[in-house]
Structure formats: structure tokens, C-alpha cells
Design a protein around this nucleic acid. Sequence first.
DNA 1: GATGAATGAGCGTTCATTCAT
DNA 2: AATGAATGAACGCTCATTCAT
Lengths: 214, 214, 214, 214
Amino acid sequence: MNIHSVTTTTIPPAPAAGKREAILAAALDLFAERTFEGTPVPLIAEHAGVAAGTIYRYFDGKEALVNALYRRWKGVLRDELASAMAAGATHEERFRMMWRGLCAFATEHPAALAFLETQHHEAYLDEESRALASAIDAAVTEYVRTAQADGAMREGPPEMLLALTFGAFVGFVKQARAAGQGIDASAASASGDVMWSALQPDDSRTASKRKESR
Amino acid sequence: MNIHSVTTTTIPPAPAAGKREAILAAALDLFAERTFEGTPVPLIAEHAGVAAGTIYRYFDGKEALVNALYRRWKGVLRDELASAMAAGATHEERFRMMWRGLCAFATEHPAALAFLETQHHEAYLDEESRALASAIDAAVTEYVRTAQADGAMREGPPEMLLALTFGAFVGFVKQARAAGQGIDASAASASGDVMWSALQPDDSRTASKRKESR
Amino acid sequence: MNIHSVTTTTIPPAPAAGKREAILAAALDLFAERTFEGTPVPLIAEHAGVAAGTIYRYFDGKEALVNALYRRWKGVLRDELASAMAAGATHEERFRMMWRGLCAFATEHPAALAFLETQHHEAYLDEESRALASAIDAAVTEYVRTAQADGAMREGPPEMLLALTFGAFVGFVKQARAAGQGIDASAASASGDVMWSALQPDDSRTASKRKESR
Amino acid sequence: MNIHSVTTTTIPPAPAAGKREAILAAALDLFAERTFEGTPVPLIAEHAGVAAGTIYRYFDGKEALVNALYRRWKGVLRDELASAMAAGATHEERFRMMWRGLCAFATEHPAALAFLETQHHEAYLDEESRALASAIDAAVTEYVRTAQADGAMREGPPEMLLALTFGAFVGFVKQARAAGQGIDASAASASGDVMWSALQPDDSRTASKRKESR
DNA sequence: GATGAATGAGCGTTCATTCAT
DNA sequence: AATGAATGAACGCTCATTCAT
């Protein structure tokens, strides 16, 4: 989790991590549950245990804060996906690790996922934040393309397949949250099954299917 | 698709449609692209071509307006889904019609879909709006349960399958919109293929699969 | 009650008296219980059973309406006082009739009295309304002066004596209203006793008076 | 008159007194001359020399402000009356001190008196404010009852006697203000004479009294 | 004459941001 | 560095007034 090294002193966004971290943590929770526009800066300050003015020592404004937050967590997500892709031996394994990694992320950082996937970011994200999002898109698109080239994934525009897959993930997580259940290992696995089968080549629906996915 | 016939006369922001419709149309566009909280009432008025005060002749307040809007479009969506479910002869046909109907809705009313699927509605939706959403959930859940009972759909909690499916649809639509492409018939069909195969029983991945889905 | 002849067709502000009267009656009730500033014109219209715009056919604006209302009722009060002063044979009789007349007015037209005596009229009364108030002041001042000249009333600036007397009357009426009681004949008489004795010459009291007050 | 010593440091709109005091002072003047409803918050801010938003740092809203103001001044008045009642040796002395105290209050804090006695407070006073008003009523009622029991005051419902007396006081003050004169010691004394004699037992007057009143 | 939909200035209030301490 | 009082633009909303019907 390289991004945490940005933190001046300690590693996780722990309560002792200093004001900058406290502000980011408070903003994350609040943006996740009330929207960027719906969250007053003084409320962030209160939750962070700092004075309102202090926020402006660490961030140029509310918009800069939300961008820092977005980059922070989008970076964590990117690292999660990158390590999943690096670790798997087969395309299916890579997919399963990604899916599991996403589920783990959603479980460990529910507010972060809600914040990242749920908002209308267009209004305030800056160039750099958008570039980060694009880089992640490119990486997973590359993964899909390779898997398709190997015959391990169905044909079709990678962007569409990814949109369906990540969309499904987000829907799944929101449903689990709305139902008040967490995402346990079996639910993560079952939902991963569903989406992996969605990605299988049509003609693979034979007994030999599984082999091609390596 | 009974409501769509209504659509032509009352829903679009036609200049002759009356101020109430103009306000709803303007609010839809703005909420879809800027969030409920991020949209000032005076801006809605401006887009609708009315004075700010006029909005309060037609709606009790901003919150009543967003609820009216939500119910209007959630109702259209419900009718769409209901007629798809009524029309199909097999479970697969019903699914395909639903997916096609959703794609048509997304194409014809992109702002409505963005508005419905994208926001933090919890803060302002009232009892009646929530009841409408629940009714739709119940209807599609019932569809899944029946299909599962007939062996035409994979096992698993219907809520999870639906969350994945609708999540995938939303992801797909957002991606298509972000890419600036519309959703043509072939894209709709291809994405429907993907998600229908996601819903197939695991053990159906044999040559006989298709038959069971009727 | 000469002022009622101003009414185009009928005599009292009865429900059948036409829209102008209905508006005046509604405005009286509302101003009395909610203040001039606190009463929206559309509410007056609703209570009067007319459309908001109609009020502007009969009055140039809210301010003109309140002036018309003030003059109407101040005129009734003036007539009441004038006839009391004309009818009495002695100064005390005149005073008693005035007091009784005021009490009758407060009983018959409680909203009118509340409106006349209770508000901050300065902000909106026009020249003519103020002139009417002054005329009444002058008439009762003249009465006091005459009574003083005849030795029937204590010395002192008539304005002060009148201010005390009318102030007492207003206080009395407000208290009766607040207590939910009407002003019956005996209460009217008892309060008149008090204020008449207030106006008696000092030298009419015996030398022993002071002792009793311990 | 303990509170009056406080007055010199905290109550008047002294520039050094802090914004809260400046706001209260400005609100007092404006409410006194334009009514609560007739006074826009931004105007209060302007008169207080603060920004409109600043008012909301000190008060929860316009209504909370008017209640704070009411309690402040009603409390001063209560202390005034209480110390007058405590200081006098005879019933008459107590009455005279009260009257003198009221006159002093009206002279020193004319806006406060206008504000307290002149408005339609019912619409916005809260429980606590009303309780304060009732406590004062109860205290003076008790005074009257005691004086009546001692034969030092005429019979009759204490509420009526008090309503007449305070009404007279208010009328007197308003008249003095309208005439542009202050209330000097002799006017205060003369008006006190009038109202004290109003409160005397009937039987304290000689048999010849009635004749003089013609 | 009468209506009531429509207007828009102005209300009470919030909140992103600044700055003296 | 940190505070939090202060600001004032902008918010959601009301209402006196106008005017097409």
C-alpha cells in the first residue's frame, strides 16, 4: 500500500495519524454517507476533531480535499487489483483474486468503496484524478484483452465486459450493504462464480470449458 | 409498454407541455448530472424557463419535487419491466425482453436512468417512493425465484443475482454514456448475452443447457 | 354610525355585503391576530373568499387596505365616543357612557379593538388616518378640559389623564380577552368606577386617606 | 436594582460590549419600532455592525433572538419591581416605588419598554419566556391581594386592577413618547398619584365626593 | 369584474472560506 | 501551526403584486 507512505508519520489512517489523516478519514465517512455536496466543511472538521480553518492548512479547499481523498482510495484499489493480477497463475485465478480483492476492499473499507463508486465525481475531479482512473481502466482492459487472446474469455469489447463486471460488483456490494449483511467468503465466492461464468466464451459451454481459462 | 404512449404527450420537455412538466424535465436533467444536493432550485427554474417562485406552485418544495420525479420515472421503469415479464413466453425470453427494455429506457431516457440509478436517494425519498422501489424489487425477485424453481436459472439468493444483474446493467449504461456511444441493438443484445449466461445454472454448461431455460 | 353608509349597498359588514366588505372583514380578523406584517395578502383573499388579485381592484395595495380598515374602525369608535359625550348630562355621566361605549365596542368588535389599539401603526398609517386619530384626541381632550374647568376632574395635563385612562381601558380589555372572559356589564361598571375615581380631584379625598394606605 | 448595575457594562450597545450585545441592542431598537415580523434579520445585522451570518453564531434563529431579548428585559423589569416591593414600608410606598421604578425603566430603556409592552408576542415566545411573564404576574397579583386584605386597596379582582394599572402606565409612557417629552420626576409622580387614587377603597372617599364630579 | 398563475425581490438561514489571534 | 469568529454569497422559500384570460 504505497500510498500510505505519503502519510508523514504513521502508516494507516489511524486516529493517531495526525490531522491530515483525521481530516481525510472524517471526509471519507461523511462523503460516503451524505454526498460531497451534502457535507459541510465544518462538519468534516468536527468529525476530524480539528478546527474548520485547519482543513485549509492541509487542503486548498473542499474540492482539493475530495480529490486527495479520491486519489488516495483509488490508489489503494489500484494496488489491490495490481497485486491480484500479478499473483494469479491463470486468467481465471487472476479474475478470482481480483474479485476476492474487491470484496475484501469493500469489507475493510466500506466507506471508501461507497465513496469511489457511488458518486457523481464529474463535477469536481481534476485532471490528475481522472488520469488515475484511466490508468486503472487501461490495466484491467489489458488484462481482458490478453485473456480474450488466449481464448479464456468471451469475445466482445473489453470495455463492455469490464463495465458489466464492475457494475455487477458495485451492485452486489450495495445490495449486501443495504441488506445489512457483510460480504462473507462464501458470498464473495458465489458472486465471483456468477461473473466469471458471465465472462466465459459462449462456445466454451462444454465439459472442456475450464481448461481454456488458464 | 403503456406508459411509453403517455410519454410522447406528457413527459418530454415539450414547450407546450405546461410548466409542471418543464420543471420536472429541467430537474431531471440537472439532478442527473449534478446531484440533488448540487442543484440549486433557481437553476432548475432557469432551465425550465420559469421564475423560481413558480416551482413552489407545483411542488411543495425541492424534496417534493425530487420525489415526484423519482416516482414518475421509477413508475415508467416498472411498467417497462412488467410488460417485458408479461410478454415473454420462456424465462430466457422474459430476461431478454427485460434487458432490451432496460436498454431502450436508457437510450430514450438517459437522464432518467442516470437519475434513478446513480444517487444517494436515501436522504430525501419519502415513504411512497420507497414503497414503489420495494414493489419493483419484489416483482423481479419473484421472477428469479420462479425461474430458479423451473431450473432455468442458477441457484443462489435472488437478491444477489439481481444485484449483480442490475449492477451490470448500470455499469454498462454508464460506460456507454461515458464513451459517448449510444446503446445500439447489437450492444444491447451482446451485453444481454453476457448476463444471461451469468445467470445460467452451473450444471447447465453442457449442450443441453438452452432447453432448460424455457 | 355614519361610516357604514360608505358601504355601497348594505349597512353592516355582513357576509352578503360584497367583496370589498368581505376583504375588510377578513383583513380585520387576520391583522388583529397576526399583525399587519405577519398577514400575507393571499391569506386575506382566502378568508374573504375572493382571489388574491381581486383585493387590488378594491385597494391600491396592502398598505391602502390597512389604512381603509383603520379609518373605518377608528371612525366607528369616534362615533361611539361622540354620541356618549352628546348624551350625558353631567361630566361623570359622560365619562360613564364613554367607558360603557368602549366596553360595548370591545365586546361587539373585539378584533377591531385589538387591531386599533394593539399594533405598531406608525409604519404604514397615512396622513388622513393620522388626522382622524388626532381629531378624536382633540375631542376627548376638550371634554377633559371642560370637566377640569368645572372642577369635576382632577387637575393635570389632559393628555396625561387621557393616556392613563385609555391605556387602562386597553389593558383591561386585553386582560379580559387573555383570561377568556368577556366583559359583562358589572365588569364594565367596576372598571369604570376605578378609572372615574382616578380622575377625581385630589381635594375630594378626606384628610384621612393616606393612613388607610398602609 | 441589582440588574441595573449590570446594565452599564453589558446591556447598552456599547462598541466594546461584544457582538452578542450589539445584536441584542440592534434587535431591541428595531423590534421596538418596527415589530418582530417587520424587522428583517439583515437589517438587525446592519444596525449591529455585523454580517448577517454572525447573528446565527449567537442565536439559533430569529425566534431564539427575540426570546433572548424578551427574557433579558422582562428580567430587568422583574428585578425592578421586586426591589421596589421589597423596599417599601407601606403598601402605598411600595406602589409608589413600583410606579417610579417603571417610569425610570421607561426613561432609561424606552425601546425595551416599547418592545415588551407593545407587541403580539404570542406567536413566537417560548415556554420559558411565558413562564417568566407569569411569574411576574403572580408576584404583583400577590402584592395586590395583600394590600386588599389590609384594607389599603379597593376590592375587586386583582387581575382587573393590575390590568388597569399597567395599561395606564403603558398608555402614559406611549403618550409621553409620542409627545416627545421624557418622563420627568414630576410627571412620574403625578401619574402615580392618579393611579394610586384609582386603587383606593371606595369608602375612603367622603360622602360628598359624588357631588363634585358633576 | 374577477381570476389565479406567474413573477422576482427579498426573506431567514447555511456554509466555504478567511484571518486576527 | 492551529484556532474559530466572522464573513457574505448563495441557498430554499415566501409573498406583494401584476396581468393574460
